[in-house]
Design a protein around this nucleic acid. Structure first.
Lengths: 197, 197
DNA sequence: GTCTATACGGAGATAGAC
DNA sequence: GTCTATCTCCGTATAGAC
């Protein structure tokens, strides 16, 4: 299999995903039509359908790409250097989201879609599980440096903190997407006040 | 204006809202059609449109009803009896949600819709603001009984905790709607480990 | 692989009788 | 106020040429 062709194919697919993300971000996933993606990509409907089965598959692919990056980033940060504290982990995750997509309304739309579309559900399920795994590892590493806080059992401490860490991240994203007067710094100060440090 | 007629009108509107909630819950807001609401209500399309402008207005009305109840419940709990602790407040709110709607997928769908539909946005915005107000009051009342935890300033302490309390509630709802293996008790234990008590 | 043009289906909303 | 029947729009997806 000629690798040039393969690379070209992947590049085109990436181009389509990028266009889809722009369209979904601008209009919202439900309201964005395939025509919007077409317009955004500079290609045609036929071209899109040649690479993705349809709008749902496109959303799944984009979601996989964006969410996976959070796991990758966190893993990298946890690997080299001092283990980040819970608040630093939260800040890192939220900063990454903001970097990838302007506002994060589309993330909330993704969650909603995952409650009703099986294809989306499966992708989100898988990637979020992966993120939880990485998150667990990061927290465990940090607790290991703070034996005073975990009674010598970093693993159990990380396990206990995990749902709240995920929940605080989700709360941040919901509020940022939904509330007119959301204040990111205030939210992080609030989180810092309750999280171990 | 004859009050019997007025009462009948309100009853019918409540009947329609209840039918809409069932339809939205069963199929998801986007996928539920007006026909579904019609079928669920036992009425006709014409009857529905005689009382509500359309699907969006219906969702807004249902959302207003369900969310407002959270504020009312919390206010009642905070008023009579011992001020509930943060974890108790969280448990109360989540219990109320579960009572009103089986799973809470439709809540996440509501948030998503609020990021893209102005009518929904305005309603959610208003009701969530009200809930935050009540929440603030409840937390302040609790802190007032625990001066050791707030350095004598219950108001500031409540203000600081507010975003996290809201975020933890939202995280609970997202995870419950989205994750196959969500464990409510585990989430609450996790929250109890970080929240002041 | 990609384009243009179009078929198909479904959903929200309305008309008009009762 | 409510019903039946229907209209109209719009979005997804495909057909067929290049």
């Amino acid at each position: 299999m000629p690798r040039v062709t393969e690379a070209h194919r992947d590049a085109r697919r990436a181009q389509i995903r990028a266009a889809a993300l722009r369209a979904f971000t601008a209009k919202g996933y439900q309201r964005a039509s395939i025509s919007d993606v077409v317009a955004e990509s500079g290609l045609s409907a036929g071209a899109i359908y040649g690479h993705y089965e349809g709008k749902r598959a496109l959303f799944a692919a984009v979601a996989e790409e964006v969410l996976s990056r959070r796991g990758t980033e966190l893993e990298a940060a946890a690997r080299d250097g001092v283990p980040p504290s819970p608040v630093e982990v939260l800040t890192l995750l939220m900063g990454g989201m903001t970097r990838d997509i302007q506002d994060n309304r589309v993330i909330v739309q993704l969650w909603a879609e995952s409650t009703v579309d099986d294809m989306i559900h499966d992708v989100v399920q898988e990637v979020v599980s992966a993120i939880q795994g990485v998150l667990h590892g990061a927290l465990r590493a940090w607790y290991a440096t703070r034996p005073d806080l975990c009674a010598g059992d970093p693993d159990a401490a990380a396990e206990l903190l995990l749902p709240v860490m995920l929940g605080l991240a989700q709360g941040y994203l919901v509020q940022r997407a939904m509330l007119d007067d959301f204040d990111p710094d205030r939210y992080l100060r609030s989180a810092a006040a309750v999280l171990p440090r």
